[in-house]
Amino acid sequence: MDALSILIDWSSYIATGIATTLGLVLIALGLGVLLGLPMALGQVYSSRPVRWAIGIYVWFFRGLPILVLLFLFWFGIFPGIGLGNVPAFVVGAIVLGLRGAAYQSQIFRGAIQSISEGQMIAARSLGMSRFTAIKSVILPQAVRIALPGWSNEYPNMLTDSAVCYAIGITELLTVTSRIVTQTYLTMPIFLAAAGIFILLNYGGLKILHALERKIEIPGFGSGAV
């Protein structure tokens, strides 16, 4: 029970680690939607050069390891453009978000492309502008189709956030290894951290799946899956 009492002693530190991890994940996921959705629309609806540019962005951010991206932005790009004082947390959230956008844009793109052309034609025949048609007809459907795939970005993002350890963000893994070096209580601490990650992982997924059911439209989408 030694281990348990140590864990309790350090519980508030662990709590800040959890909060930081969740903060990283939520900001990055939000940033991913904010960038990924327009990128998806751009890849489907806009001109060739724009599609090309987005394609290169996606190729780059999906092709590089998260560790290399973090190093690149933290040591290279941010200081290079005079933003060396930006806290690691912000850089980490931005990098995770930029990378998430690359992955999410492909989920959204697939969803948009799965919607039949008739939807757009019907909307335009009612006098809607292209923009209105996308906003009121295409996107509400696409988002519902994309949601199951999108939910899976959460566990990916959560496990990736641990790599932010490498640039010194005091998220859960950093907190864990600091406690380990302070207490020499190695395995119990590591396993407790794994347990917390697993709980966050499946707990979060449960919430997301509940959300999916909430915005479900009867009969819709079953064909797409």
């Binding site: 566990p155 959560l158 496990t159 990736d160 956030s161 641990a162 790599v163 350890y165 893994l173 864990t176 290894s177 380990v180 020499y184 190695t186 395995m187 590591f190 396993l191 951290a193 794994a194 990650f197 697993i198 992982n201 499946y202």
Partner: peptide, 23 residues
């Protein structure tokens, strides 16, 4: 599968490299 997918790979590596020597 559930345990491995739920644990960040980096933490798994820490367990294997820094953790196992303690046992």
């Amino acid at each position: 599968v559930l345990l491995i997918k739920g644990t960040p790979l980096l933490l798994l590596l820490f367990i294997l490299y820094f953790g196992l020597p303690s046992i």
